[in-house]
Nucleic acid binder design. Structure first.
Length: 394
DNA sequence: CCTCCACCGGAAAGCCGGGTCA
DNA sequence: TGACCCGGCTTTCCGGTGGAGG
């Protein structure tokens, strides 16, 4: 009798791959004791039928914000036993007040999985739920992605005013510190009742974290201590981002697995670093809507064939006129048998691409007639073309 | 100094595909 | 089935903007 075990090849390197994934939450989170304690003390009132304060958490990507909150969520829900709930909401996906409320309602109430109810209806239902003395803590991860956030915050504060027992409170998470400036002062004060900062990890800290994961996720003896330390140092230098550090480690492990080398060493780590860098770009491009891809394709192609107006200014080497990129975009659309969008839409795409760091742009200055944007690729155009021609032209 | 150029980007309105409800 | 509601993506409209040209 064959067994599935026969087909699940034993890995030379990995003991448990999941441990290296960014979604894995270790039992002990290093270097975040202080933040975790503070979070717990802030949330404790909800377990005693009092309203906890709203919390705002700030920190760059990969500083353990989400991880800490998720870890606490587990403990909290065990303790609360259904009386109170913490609901995690990723605002990149649920980026409107309506969606956030719907997600919360779905999480908390059975049989609430339909769209088409108006916001007021969802609101009323939540009030009824909380009215039994229950507390809802909404974790809004990437809260800066929510459009009309003021409206959402207002809705929630009003809910608390209407309730006699129970309540709704918030944990907002963001990696943009500045975003509080575009908030209405009233919502600002409600969201910032308590503020917490998660600093980037240092090289030493990242190394310890990586060692922890390597011990759990990789076979003993499959890696060198030096390699782990190198990965930590690289990530610390870049950003102090633990997710990035883990990606490098994971990639390096994969390379070891596929390659000749017996152990994961500095060599694999260095190679993995480059791969990871391009992986990130590739992922960003893949996720782009089609029109954005075509525009980027156009920028890349012109970067190689050269700008028709080029060399007006030697110092602005590699920059393209917004106008000529639009022309290239429309001709590309024709070739791909797509209806080109208006110039106004095109300008939005350009801005989106710039926000993602896929292109850079500057304002035109002297020597150029009128007023326009000059655009340049943020990454090697040939690589991008290779990727996009496959994607777009099949 | 005025006007034109070649764009910029906010606001608002329209369309579409997905859903509910009576 | 028709009236509504939602979000996402567009288009339309239009008031800027800073340098070039006259």
């Amino acid at each position: 009798m064959p067994s599935f075990d026969d087909f699940i090849a034993e890995s030379r390197v990995f003991r448990d791959r999941d441990v290296l994934s960014p979604h894995y939450i270790p039992d002990t989170l290093y270097f975040r004791d202080h933040q975790i304690k503070e979070l717990m003390s802030a949330l404790a009132p909800a377990l005693m039928s009092k309203k906890p304060r709203n919390i705002f958490i700030y920190g760059k990507t990969g500083t353990g914000k989400t991880c800490s909150v998720k870890q606490i969520t587990k403990k909290f829900e065990e303790k609360a036993n259904g009386r109170s709930r913490i609901v995690y909401i990723n605002c990149r996906i649920h980026n409107k007040p309506y969606r956030v409320m719907l997600k919360a309602a779905k999480a908390v109430m059975e049989g609430f999985d339909k769209q088409g109810y108006g916001l007021p209806h969802i609101y009323e239902r939540l009030l009824i739920w909380a009215g039994e003395g229950k507390h809802l803590v909404m974790v809004l991860d990437e809260i800066d992605m929510v459009k009309h956030l003021d409206e959402l915050l207002y809705t929630i504060t009003r809910a608390n005013d209407e309730l006699e027992a129970g309540g709704v409170s918030l944990i907002g998470i963001s990696n943009r510190l500045l975003f509080k400036e575009d908030l209405d002062p009233r919502s600002r004060s409600s969201l910032y009742e308590r503020e917490m900062v998660f600093p980037p990890y240092t090289a030493n800290q990242l190394q310890k974290i990586l060692h922890q994961r390597a011990e759990l996720g990789l076979h003993t003896g499959a890696y060198t201590t030096g390699a782990i330390n190198l990965a930590g140092a690289i990530a610390a230098q870049e950003s102090g981002d633990a997710r990035y550090a883990l990606k490098i480690l994971c990639r390096a492990a994969e390379m070891t697995e596929e390659g000749e080398s017996e152990k994961l060493t500095d060599r694999e780590v260095n190679a993995a670093r480059e791969l990871v860098e391009f992986d990130i770009v590739k992922e960003a491009i893949d996720k782009l809507p089609e029109n954005h891809q075509v525009v980027l394709y156009g920028v890349a192609r012109l970067s190689i064939s050269g700008s028709r107006y080029a060399r007006l200014d030697e110092t602005n080497d590699g920059y393209l006129f917004s106008g000529e990129v639009y022309e290239e975009y429309t001709t590309l659309c024709k070739r791909l048998k797509k209806q080109a969008k208006t110039a106004r839409s095109y300008r939005s795409y350009l801005n989106d691409l710039e926000m993602l760091g896929l292109i850079t742009s500057i304002e035109s200055g002297k020597g150029i007639r009128g007023h326009t944007k000059l655009v340049k690729m943020g990454h090697p155009p040939r690589e991008v073309i290779k990727l996009l021609s496959k994607r777009l032209e099949g």
